[in-house]
């Protein structure tokens, strides 16, 4: 039930993101100065924003960016985290100790202050162009993944340990199955459920983190629309046009709730 609600919420958001370029007749990036903060109407179902752009269309386009950040960060976290968790469980001993101590240390650290440090770094120093939407998304996703992999790694390690302790593993090893084949064909598939849970939560976390970074002025730069920067922008006008702040807030809420529901549903 939860899984179904969650998945349908996410499917809706994904559909919005995919269809965004084909919906609507206006350009969501072209300002219309005579139409600022217009109330909802037939032409603009959710009204217009501070530059007279259609809020509904920008929400759709924002879905692309916010989902890209969320999925990007979560996928990177998933790859790194699964690899680290598997490695720690499989090699054990020294590898396990170092990886898990690193994970503990990262988990105990306050993420946002560090994100602020990392966001204030010069992207040009690591070869990324400054201030372009694509580069922004990548930069934020990488920074978020740098913290997000820990959650995945812990779950993956715990699951891998229990799988590796099972009889069939000993049997397979006795039969001379190569370690690579063992890990990839027998252990990894069994890790899928916990990893899926952790990844779904990572998507939610990344979308929320992007909005927090936008609020601090370190998120996705204009003219690209993300839910985070739409929300951060709207807070400036919260007394004059509170509705403009409502929609992106709601979009974030629904998507994050969708991810949490999926995670919950998978857990059962």
């Amino acid at each position: 039930m939860k899984l179904r609600i969650g998945l349908s919420l996410l499917a809706l958001v994904a559909l919005a993101a995919i269809l965004a370029p084909w919906v609507g007749s206006h350009d969501p990036f072209a300002p219309d100065l005579f139409n600022r903060y217009a109330p909802p109407s037939a032409a603009h179902p959710l009204g217009t924003d501070d530059l007279g752009r259609d809020v509904a269309l920008r929400l759709l386009h924002g879905a692309r960016v916010s989902l890209a950040v969320g999925l990007g960060a979560a996928l990177m976290a998933m790859l790194v985290g699964t690899a680290a968790g598997l490695l720690a469980a499989w090699r054990g001993g020294w590898w396990d100790a170092v990886l898990m101590r690193l994970a503990d240390a990262l988990l105990a650290l306050p993420a946002l202050p560090l994100l602020i440090v990392l966001s204030a770094l010069d992207p040009a120093a690591i070869g990324l162009p400054r201030g372009e939407a694509g580069a922004d998304i990548l930069r934020i996703a990488v920074i978020l993944a740098a913290f997000g992999w820990v959650g995945v790694a812990r779950l993956a390690r715990a699951a891998a340990l229990s799988v590796l302790a099972q009889d069939f593993v000993r049997a397979a090893r006795a039969l001379g199955v190569s370690e690579t084949r063992l890990l990839l064909r027998h252990v990894l598939p069994q890790l899928a459920p916990p990893i899926a849970v952790a990844t779904a939560l990572a998507v939610a976390g990344a979308i929320l983190a992007e909005s927090a970074l936008s609020f601090l002025g370190l998120g996705i730069a204009p003219p690209a629309a993300s839910w985070g920067n739409m929300l951060a922008n709207a807070q400036e006008a919260v007394f004059a046009a509170p509705l403009v702040a409502l929609w992106p807030g709601l979009a974030i809420l629904l998507t994050v709730a969708g991810c949490s529901l999926v995670a919950d549903g998978l857990r059962r």
Binding site: A204, L208, S211, A212, F215, G228, L231, A232, Q235, A245, G249, I252, L253, L254, V256, A257, S260, L261
Partner: peptide
């Protein structure tokens, strides 16, 4: 669910 989905600054 609501509590964990609302952006804090909002």
């Amino acid at each position: 669910l609501l509590a964990q989905s609302v952006p804090g600054f909002w």
